[in-house]
Design a binder for these strands. Structure first.
Lengths: 122, 122
DNA sequence: ACTATTATTAGTAATCATTACTAATAAGGA
DNA sequence: TCCTTATTAGTAATGATTACTAATAATAGT
């Protein structure tokens, strides 16, 4: 595995974004630094970074989105505006592990975010 | 919204399956009863049934899968054989609901199922 | 039950996120 | 610095899903 400027850039973009960017958005952003970086390169590197556990893929609705691996956290998907919100609250779950070897879990919430609730009041 | 034999058949197939079928698999199964049911009809009805909360869509890897709405439960995805396993154990989570109006949540586990663990031993 | 309305269907074409392919490029070890 | 080969840019292909259209069938009103 080689270190390339494309790979570093993509990792940087994901790690420095507060949103949960799609591959398309990451490509658009990376074009600002490397004017001819290709969409295929973005997809390939995103997959590599996910496999190496450097970033995380989020599958809610629509297309996939990518998130940094900092503090373990979960997400809420707003069914109105399709925004994904970080939930950093510590949620403890206990489970008798009889299903196999569980390596990871994530809790996905769905609902209506505060912004949309405000708009509904108007 | 009208009751059609196509719609009923699709709902029946999802509700009577122990697996988590894909749209393609549901189409193949429904062809046994309605010899010329189209794939588009299957997709359209699946979406309708999800919107009416009669079935549930599961988004792990690959394509989407569909599951019945019986007892509230969660899923584990085996990263080896790509099987989806039901987890009916009651998992309590507590969360200060300050993110909006949460309507639903699901806990998605990833790991290696017992079948695959057995095979690894050999 | 008959008819009119219109939602739903079968069949097919289009879309669009993602992956595959290929020749050119560049990372990094010798 | 050179050589090997992983990675890239650019583009074509794939494949799940959605859109479109004329034909069909469900249901409300008579």
């Amino acid at each position: 595995m080689r270190v390339t400027k494309q790979r570093n850039l993509i990792l940087d973009i994901v790690n420095n974004s507060k949103d949960h960017l799609s591959a398309e958005e990451i490509h658009k952003e990376s074009l600002k630094s490397i004017k001819n970086i290709s969409l295929g390169t973005v997809y390939r590197n995103l997959n590599n970074l996910v496999n190496e556990n450097l970033i995380k893929k989020i599958k809610f609705e629509e297309f996939d989105r990518y998130d940094q691996i900092n503090i373990k956290h979960n997400h809420m998907f707003c069914t109105k505006c399709h925004k994904i919100i970080d939930i950093f609250e510590d949620i403890k779950i206990s489970l008798k592990n009889k299903f196999g070897k569980i390596n990871d879990y994530e809790i996905n919430f769905k609902g209506i975010c505060n912004d949309c609730l405000e708009k509904e009041k108007e």
